[in-house]
């Protein structure tokens, strides 16, 4: 089993232009890459002997629109609690570098390798005006439903997905509920029976 820096080195050697940043906050190896390299990196991760990431464990997205901002309409004593500092005894004191780019969305992939026992988080920044990344369905079958869910919840399109439609919400649902500009108490128009 390789340690996190050597994992990053392997990726750097193969894709010097693709990698935007790496970090190992709390021991979770994380690599941020440019979206155009996604399919190549994914295939490399699956097939390269050092990685052999045969599980795509999780695929989700984060909307960084309001990151670090006070939510509107909150009471003045918002965030009046005392911030917890990580205790001195934990080994990993690497601070989190924050969202890698200024892009609004990040699609987050969690890989696991049964052979080597590595876990790796891959992040792909996605711009707001053209929220689209390549689909990983040709590489892992589990990407199918996960990507449908991200489309449903965040409105990020996956190029090459065979059946990209809503999964948890209904077809008539307006908007994408996990986006930060979707208010939590918004009501949806009632839908009647389909004629």
């Amino acid at each position: 089993m390789l340690d996190n820096p050597s994992l990053f080195d392997l990726l750097h050697q193969r894709f010097p232009a693709a990698i935007l940043s790496t970090h190992a906050h709390r021991g979770d190896a994380t690599v941020t890459i440019r979206s155009e390299y996604l399919l190549d990196v994914a295939r490399f991760l699956r097939d390269e002997p050092g990685f052999r990431m045969n599980f795509l464990m999780d695929l989700t997205a984060v909307d960084y629109l309001t990151f670090g901002q006070k939510p509107p309409g909150r009471a003045a004593h918002f965030n009046a609690g005392v911030a917890v500092r990580p205790p001195a005894f934990i080994q990993d004191q690497i601070p989190w570098p924050g969202p890698a780019t200024g892009a609004r969305f990040e699609v987050v992939y969690h890989f696991y390798s049964l052979e080597t026992g590595h876990r790796l988080r891959l992040k792909v920044p996605v711009e707001e005006d053209s929220p689209q990344v390549d689909s990983l369905t040709p590489v892992w079958a589990s990407a199918d439903w996960f990507e449908r869910e991200v489309w449903d919840m965040f409105g990020i399109r996956f190029k090459g997905h065979p059946n990209l439609k809503r999964i948890l919400m209904y077809e008539e649902f307006q908007g994408h509920p996990l986006r930060k500009d979707y208010p939590v108490n918004r009501r949806q128009p009632l839908i009647g029976p389909i004629n």
Binding site: H25, R26, D28, T30, D58, G68, N79, G81, V82, A83, V84, R85, P86, P95, W96, G98, H110, R119, R121
Partner: peptide
């Protein structure tokens, strides 16, 4: 509780 900035799985 206000944890430090970060992301974990």
């Amino acid at each position: 509780i206000r944890p430090p900035r970060g992301e974990v799985y």
